[in-house]
Simulated assay, not measured.
Amino acid sequence: MASLKEIRTRISSVKTTRQVTSAMKMVSAAKLKKAQDAILQIRPYADKLHEILSSLGSSLENSEDSVYTQQRKPEKVLLVLVSSNRGLCGAFNSSIAKMAYDLAITKYPKQLQSENLDFLIIGKQGEKFLKLKRMPIAGQANDLLESLTFEQTSEVASRLMADFAEKRYDRIELVYNEFKNAAVQICTVEQFLPVEISEEDQDDNASFDFIYEPSKEEIVQELIPRSLKIQFFRALLDSNAAEQGARMTAMHKATDNATDLIKDLTLTFNKARQAAITNEILEVTNGAEALNG
Rank of each mutant, 00 (worst) to 15 (best):
Y108H: 08
K128Q: 14
L120H: 01
A141I: 01
Q191A: 10
I186C: 09
A138K: 10
Q202P: 00
F119R: 04
S198T: 15
N205D: 15
A165I: 00
F179E: 09
C187R: 15
A182I: 10
F164Q: 05
Q125W: 02
S114Y: 00
R134Q: 15
Q111N: 02
A138V: 00
P194C: 13
A182P: 00
S198V: 05
Q202Y: 04
R159A: 12
D170H: 15
E155P: 03
F129E: 08
D201Y: 08
G123H: 05
P136S: 02
S147N: 15
A183Y: 09
Q185V: 05
C187E: 15
E190N: 14
R159Y: 02
P136C: 02
S147C: 11
E190P: 07
F179I: 06
K128L: 15
Q113I: 03
Q191C: 11
M135N: 02
F192A: 10
I121M: 12
L120Q: 07
K131T: 10
A138W: 03
T188F: 05
L144D: 05
E190C: 11
V184M: 10
K167V: 09
K133L: 07
R159T: 12
L148C: 01
F164W: 07
V189A: 09
L132Y: 12
N205F: 13
E127W: 02
A157T: 12
Q191I: 11
R159L: 12
Q202V: 14
E151T: 11
D201H: 12
G139D: 05
F179P: 04
I197R: 06
Q113Y: 07
L117M: 01
K124N: 14
F129A: 12
D163Q: 11
I122F: 01
M161D: 09
E178R: 15
G126M: 06
F192G: 09
E178P: 00
F192E: 08
T149E: 08
S114V: 02
I172G: 00
Y108Q: 03
Q185T: 08
L117I: 04
A182V: 06
E190G: 09
T153F: 00
